[in-house]
Design a protein around this nucleic acid. Structure first.
Lengths: 224, 224
DNA sequence: GAACTCTATCAACACTGTGTCGAGAAGGTC
DNA sequence: GACCTTCTCGACACAGTGTTGATAGAGTTC
């Protein structure tokens, strides 16, 4: 989902990048990495709005103008980090339908969601930054929208499958239900991760969410 | 919930205001109103980040320094507007337990939620501004947190009542379920209102949300 | 009607942060 | 050693925020 300048292979001399560096060949990759690392570190310390381009430059041992040689803006740095985090989360992901079939609804759902949120839970600062970016940055909106969409598609498939085999009763269109459920998860997980006002305890979120999912999809908290 | 300088009565000479004006007596109330109206108008045109203090001042026919005579910051203006919108939404609100008892679960829930979201639906720009403010403004976070909390409390009471009279089966602690459900509603309504990436259609949101609520709380979409 | 006190107003300033420009240094290549 | 290319930064131009200080005018008060 979206590009992320990997450098396993030498990388074609002129990659059409939006964020990240332009030419790219030798060192200075170190600088780029230093900037990203600085950003990740600072984001776990304070919100994005309180981090300036100068902070990132200083942290990477370069001057502010030099920062702009590597990234077009502060947002671009954050987007790169999020790109990678999302790719990371998508990587360890197994086919949800398979997981459900193998473990049964409750345990399967739990396994899938636990796996999904593991990557995010380890970097709350990055998650917050992504969320902070959405209001002002269209690219951030699109990126997160695409992530949500892929989850919705998966969940829609699950609901349709379960209804098809008679394990789940009829109800609102599967996709509509999937959207609402995925949105609930996003909101609840986010609130918990950041310790918002009314939010669920860290070790209770998943239990509660899964219970609602099961009741919504199967009509009972303990399906077949 | 939180102050909002009303001026029905002459208002005590020294009201301890955080936002809004200080002394307050004669005209210049016009100016304050002009600023608020300008802000509301502009917010329906473009996001908060693209509105400067200067825009608000110009719109109200005053200079930028004069703006600061009336409000300590741009955020304060938005918070005042949101304060009023929230108060407005809370105003037309009836006891949810009563509404449920009179109309039955499905219709009662529908009536309550429709009523609740009516105020917000008419001013999407203000809602977005409030949401945009949360990342950077603690007061905005607290305000919205308090709103959420009051809804959660109501819903918790409903769930406990329905379980008590045997209409709803046991399940996770009522408050936990209430938090997740209220969060789902917030997220879904917001996404729909702003026409986000994956979101429910305007005329379907409530149906879908209510269906999930009923299944989650009663175990069936058509409780007695 | 002069002295006094408020509210209300703004030009000019100080500051913070962003992004750009143009002049170079440092290294590789022919 | 002339010549790219990568990389670096001082100095600038801008946009926006919030403050200061001086001042205009309206309304007492004696």
């Amino acid at each position: 989902m979206a590009t992320a300048s990997k450098a396993g292979t030498p990388a074609p001399p002129s990659a059409p990048k939006g964020r990240g560096r332009r030419g790219a060949r030798t060192s200075g990759d170190d600088r780029e990495r230093a900037i990203l690392e600085t950003a990740e570190r600072l984001l776990e310390e304070r919100p994005l709005a309180e981090i300036s381009v100068d902070d990132l430059a200083k942290g990477a041992g370069i001057s502010r103008p030099t920062f702009y040689f590597y990234f077009p803006s502060k947002d671009a740095v954050v987007l790169t980090i999020i790109d990678r985090l999302v790719a990371n989360a998508a990587e360890g992901r197994e086919e949800i339908l398979t997981t459900l079939a193998e473990n049964g609804p409750r345990a399967g759902l739990r396994k899938s969601l636990e796996n999904l949120y593991a990557a995010f839970r380890s970097r709350p600062g990055v998650v917050r930054a992504g969320s902070d970016l959405r209001p002002t940055n269209g690219e951030a909106r699109d990126l997160w929208g695409a992530v949500m969409e892929s989850w919705v598609a998966d969940v829609t498939a699950v609901i349709e499958f379960e209804r098809g085999r008679g394990a789940a009763p009829a109800g609102p269109p599967a996709r509509e239900m999937a959207i609402a459920l995925v949105q609930m998860n996003e909101r609840a997980q986010y609130a918990t991760l950041l310790g918002e006002a009314p939010s669920l305890d860290r070790d209770r979120v998943l239990d509660v969410l899964i219970d609602i999912w099961l009741r919504a999809i199967y009509g009972t908290p303990e399906p077949g």
